[in-house]
Design a protein around this nucleic acid. Structure first.
Lengths: 80, 80
DNA sequence: ATGCATTTGTTCGTATGTATG
DNA sequence: GCATACATACGAACAAATGCA
């Protein structure tokens, strides 16, 4: 997927990333229980720090859109 | 209030802090709409980094126990 | 079982931005 | 303008879990 972070935006970087990942999931770019890109991949693709990427993932977890398994990855939550 | 962080515990520092703040709120140590200690105060009292303290606050916000106003402080959510 | 690479989780210290009073 | 307080972000390091060779 394509991710564009606008540094000068008033919207925080982590929020922009979370929004774009959410849109990608909504668009069906990732199937349920399929992994989204790893922290390292997102870090490299966006140029953000790992902590910032992690923050974005935390937001998505809080919204119940993804779930995470340590050592494995972060996966799209299947529809209930 | 008294806060004790056990560095060697398996429980993360931010979670310990969140737990203790939650207990203090539950115990009525802070009235509804009353401010809890500032980030700097918690940072100084616990020896944790500001980011770690902030993480703890974020957890409490996510649980709806407190709400934050930038430039003012973090306050106990009144019972609905 | 051992080791290694990958991946997520926690924490620090620091810097800077933004809002309030 | 200034002091205080929360918000965002970086880079770095290390811990812990997983899976595979």
């Amino acid at each position: 997927m394509e991710i564009e972070i606008n540094i000068r935006s008033k919207v925080p970087s982590y929020q922009q990333l979370a929004d774009q990942l959410e849109a990608a999931i909504a668009a069906g770019e990732y199937a349920p229980d399929e992994a989204i890109p790893s922290l390292k991949q997102l870090k490299d693709q966006t140029g953000l720090a790992q902590g910032t990427v992690q923050h974005a993932i935390t937001v998505l977890e809080a919204k119940g859109l993804v779930y995470t398994v340590r050592g494995r990855g972060t996966f799209v939550t299947p529809q209930a």
